[in-house]
Write a protein that binds this DNA or RNA. Structure first.
Lengths: 329, 329
DNA sequence: TTGTACGCGTTATCAA
DNA sequence: TTGATAACGCGTACAA
């Protein structure tokens, strides 16, 4: 691949002159300018970013370290992050930790080796011993996304409030028993439970939790659940994947949705609109989240002296659809 | 961030010695070795890849330029590509073209600027004037994935054969009328049509094509379709997204699946197993595809003198589920 | 307006 | 076994 020095040789000028022409900084003799530009175009010159960053100490790379790119929620996020980065002349170097702290550690090392200008991280477990210390020690402008980490810039959706929205929705719709499909350590669950408890201090007696991801076990749990007489049940699944799974199982069991069981998912993925019945789901503002995160990151890169830390809680929004709303008329 | 020169200063040796210690190449005085290693550990030294590549002319970067990361099929692919790359000490620099040739061109420029060691590409339109010329001119080891490009290494699934499988499946299951939901320029369609035509030269009279992505239009088309008496209809959707959409519409219309209409999707995404009825779909061997592509790419990087080009057509496999198979018993 | 000289952080080649 | 020294491709101060 052609270099500035090579172009300089071909056009009979010095390398810095070529640099000046190509960067359009200072004034140069129009004739030389043309000659150099022509030569550069002819050989399709592209500056070596590696060399540029070596001298300029800017790599124009943003490290993205996340847990699972195959999850369409994150894939979506990456798409928007890439768009924002590209618009500002940055590129993404991507790492998938697969929820493995080892991979995460490894990725952070590599990220440092590339001297990325900034880092967008979705931690495997932000509460794990030393995670935030580890990241802070990298000394790279960082924004945590989808999670809140104390003392670090975080852009996230309040899962607690989101869960509460679902709880309130269930109350409005007159559900009287509840199933949470997921892990109760999830903040979504906390908010959900709190909202319900507020109206009904004894709601836990009317709550069933299903955590398994295996169809057989889920089905068994549901069959046991339905082995007694039930009132209208509101089911909250911790993401759309699980919600679709749940919907399928309910349908196979012959439970009518939403008449007997209302269902709400999380992430508002494209299929919500397609399913029958259409699936209610909590929408996270993905594009906004990516945009704010990248905007904040670029600001931090541009203002390294500003060591303040910002918290960006965003609002999720429950999109109510047929799966949890009683048919009118 | 600490450098070798800095470590050299701190430990009172020369910088090349530090390099030797850290790379473990040549023998060095054990005492010095320890001293240097200790210092490196203490400051968590990570070599500057930019500097390394400047001299070594290897960046350990693989450029990934694809059309739409938010499509879970590609997201899945990226996950496996990343895994393979990581295993060989490479990292991914990711570009999302969003099906825009401008973005694609731009991405390829940036990829060159970073002097990536290899490129994995999903072209926006591999038949577009100059695409393959453009990529070839980059002079970077490249593997095209999911598409076949003459004269370039390609790893892909034969969509023609995949479509044919669906056609044969419809024949076996006794469908007598057909809907193709997608664009007829798609090779899937060609294979599908050919397979059916073989048995029934006049099958086109029994074929309806729906290309719109808008629910209203699709529904209108279906209503028109069902305005006359119909035999059992086999519907082939060009991907699972569309298949789910189609399924929802059919269910809303009260068309029974698979009794009145059989449905087959494409990509075999996770939800196929969850839906009711479970969705038949053509499975592409994603992991294998990523693994072969990356393997081939690494080979080409390691053997730049070998300019042969390899074609890797893989077999898709139709996974038959309830949505297209008559219930037994 | 242009060229010389230097430095960024490494690796590699020498000579010591 | 170690240390000078050059080189990679570029940007930038400085001198001309």
């Amino acid at each position: 691949m052609i270099t500035m020095t090579e172009i300089a040789r071909l056009t009979g000028v010095s390398q810095p002159t070529v640099s000046r022409v190509l960067n359009g900084n200072q004034a140069v003799n129009p004739k030389i300018r043309e000659r150099v530009l022509a030569c550069a175009r002819e050989h399709d010159f592209q500056p070596n970013v590696m060399a540029q960053s070596l001298v300029g100490s800017k790599t124009h790379l943003i490290g993205v370290v996340l847990t699972d790119i195959s999850n369409s929620f994150f894939a979506d996020l990456v798409k928007y992050l890439e768009r924002e980065a590209r618009a500002s002349g940055y590129s993404l170097i991507l790492f998938n930790t697969d929820y493995d702290p080892e991979h995460e550690k490894e990725s952070l090392d590599v990220v440092r080796r590339y001297r990325v200008d900034g880092l967008v991280a979705v931690p495997v477990d932000e509460r794990a011993a030393g995670w935030s210390g580890m990241v802070r020690k990298l000394d790279i402008p960082t924004v945590v996304i989808t999670k809140k980490v104390e003392g670090m810039d975080s852009v996230y959706v309040s899962h607690e409030e989101a869960g509460a929205q679902v709880g309130r929705h269930f109350l409005e719709e007159g559900f009287e028993e509840y199933i949470f499909f997921g892990n109760t350590e999830d903040v979504k669950y906390q908010g959900f439970a709190k909202a319900l408890e507020k109206k009904d201090p004894e709601f836990r007696r009317r709550l069933t939790v299903i955590s398994s991801k295996k169809e057989r076990e889920i089905r068994a749990a549901l069959e046991q659940y339905y082995s007694r007489e039930r009132k209208r049940t509101g089911i909250f699944a911790y993401n759309d994947r699980r919600a679709v799974q749940m919907l399928g199982i309910l349908q196979r069991m012959g439970v009518r949705v939403p008449e007997e069981a209302g269902l709400v998912g999380f992430d508002n993925t494209y299929m919500c609109e397609f399913l029958y019945p259409r699936l209610s789901s909590v929408a996270q503002p993905n594009e906004e989240m990516a945009s704010i995160a990248m905007g904040r990151l670029l600001y931090k890169i541009a203002h390294p002296e500003d060591s303040r830390t910002e918290d960006h809680p965003l609002q999720a929004k429950l999109v109510k659809r047929d799966s949890s709303v009683r048919q009118k008329k």
